[in-house]
Nucleic acid binder design. Structure first.
Lengths: 342, 342
DNA sequence: CTGTTAGCGCTTTCAG
DNA sequence: CTGAAAGCGCTAACAG
């Protein structure tokens, strides 16, 4: 009982293969009687037109590749969720590739995807800022192969494609401004994504808010946190350096950890130290106190990316202009910050 | 500059298409000179063998379909992560389908996947216990189409395939026994997955532990929590009904919510009320106090499922015996429970 | 060493 | 109303 094909049905009825094809596709060229017989037989035998053969014929696959650095990160899962929602609506499937932050795997993955198995690719590159120039080649190869590409979150000017980026500058600005308005005087940043350009944007926004309010920018208040560094130690040094009354953590897990450490050192959040985290997920909502977060609207980013890509895939025309969508963030006020007094 | 094919290269060099194919595949039948020229040209023009054509030829896709009910659930993400790890190692891609707990979408998805686009399917069906008999048909159709199938987590006896299941009975037993050993006398259960068979297994384990220790089983202590029910209200009723000193919540988010509600009512966790949750994820680790959890080893389940499926795909032989792997859970002791006194 | 042919499963002219 | 033939891109006998 192997997979049944048109050929099998054809020989079953002693008709030609194209007759069967037409019957199954309800062509008016075929007599009702024959159609009925053939279709009944097809149903009974679980006939399914071979997608691969159709792919080859139509030169499309109705499938898009999604390349993300890490699936255990809630932000990317949210994006994936948004992508899936749109692609499902529009009749596409997604093939999910996880690079585990490895450039090598990303390259391998992109090569795999550039062989016709997908109609387009959505990617958040794992490339760190300084690696992009060299890495860009692989992404550009995709375009050479005429595979539409949408980059989100971590993008690069070196690649010509549609992009969806978070307004990280504004996000950093907004968070900082909010802290200032609630009365904070000395605002530190803990940056676990120091290798990424988006961290830099947020810090630029932070600076702008500082300067606008006549606060001086102190480099020592911005702590890059490498993966192997000890957060507890970093925080101790920071807290000993100056009297700090607010901390911005550039991802969610770091925000939660900072809160636990700070609490364990006897500080009250938010009365002694206010806290704002980035990338709103599940965690910050349920810890005590619930942490005020900058939400990046991951799901929306996914939806936007998918829409952009499918548009690009289906409209072969305007191959000239690429767009870059800037997605605004929202500040979700919870209990780890003071309220604005005025 | 469209996608380049063997034909294009062939006409470029005035040779036949099969010569080019052989050159590219480094066949010894072709002269080194020609090979070099052709391969250089291929490289320069970003030639990529068309995967779809190869799929058609080889009658496989090196792709497997993964069908899960909900991607925003950390357990499923962990499973997905495990699957991805193995499939990547073994040269397979995964196409991810999310059913959002909708049986209808699941059916649609399975139909889509049974058309040759994947070599096999891994699924955790969204079907509720009472829906399985009717739904099983769609899963069985897959097998009719000779597509290997692995079910995990929520499985059904009605389907003949490889399965990976959590030992939920033992998990319920273990959690309850632990609570009893730490001195708890009145243990309640909050069950947000009342429609699922796995909830029932856990409750059976709970009963067994109770009876083994000469505790009586009180049905009223087991609260089914429907999606539209108010957890706060449910808990109030429960806490008023009897003096309860332990609660088992059958998923993580419910555990966290239970803890917050119980705390807000003035109970101390674990001194007044001990708490154990199911499905260890990120949340329970970071709330205060950190919650003792039953870990289901999602990543391992994913790895196991993927290995099972790929074995099945690649060994066309023994099509007779299906295996069911029972994955043990672990109790991760944290601060929401007392320590065993002895 | 290179080319011809057939065929993977399907649709689509174009003939009968 | 039904069938033959071509072709999607590629590989693998089998000839030359």
């Amino acid at each position: 009982m192997k997979k049944i094909t048109l050929k099998d049905i054809a020989s079953e009825f002693g008709v030609s293969i194209s007759t069967v094809s037409k019957a199954i596709n309800d062509s008016h060229e075929i007599s009702e009687k024959l159609k009925d017989k053939i279709r009944a037989f097809a149903k009974d035998n679980h006939y399914r037109p071979n997608k691969i053969a159709l792919n080859l014929l139509n030169r499309n696959t109705k499938t898009i590749g999604v390349v993300i650095p890490n699936i255990l990160n809630y932000f990317f899962v949210q994006v994936l969720y948004g992508i899936e929602k749109i692609t499902d609506e529009k009749g596409y499937s997604i093939i999910t590739c996880i690079t585990n932050q490895s450039l090598e795997k990303e390259t391998k993955t992109l090569e795999l995807l550039s062989n016709g198995s997908v109609d387009g690719v959505i990617i958040s590159s794992a490339a760190q800022e300084d690696e992009i120039p060299h890495h860009a080649k692989h992404l550009r190869d995709l375009s050479e192969n005429q595979i539409p590409l949408v980059m989100f979150d971590r993008v690069s000017d070196l690649i010509n494609c549609d992009k969806v980026v978070v307004d990280d500058f504004e996000a950093g600005y907004k968070a900082t401004k909010y802290l200032i308005e609630t009365g904070c005087k000395t605002i530190a940043i803990v940056n676990p994504i120091a290798d990424s350009i988006i961290g830099r944007f947020r810090i630029e926004g932070y600076k702008k808010a500082l300067l606008e309010n006549n606060f001086s920018f102190d480099e020592k208040l911005v702590e890059a946190l490498n993966p192997n560094e000890d957060l507890e130690l970093t925080l101790s040094l920071l807290l000993n350096y100056k009297k700090i009354d607010a901390i911005i953590a550039l991802d969610e897990i770091t925000a939660v950890k900072v809160q636990n450490i700070v609490k364990s050192k006897g500080y009250n959040v938010p009365n002694d130290i206010s806290l704002i985290g980035f990338t709103n997920g599940e965690l910050s909502k349920y810890v005590t106190p619930a942490i005020t977060m900058v939400s990046q609207h991951g799901k929306y980013i996914g939806e936007l990316s998918a829409n952009l890509l499918i548009d690009r895939i289906e409209n072969t025309k305007d191959f000239l202009s690429f767009t870059t969508k800037l997605v605004k963030t929202s500040l979700i006020e919870r209990e780890s910050t003071l309220t604005i007094s005025n």
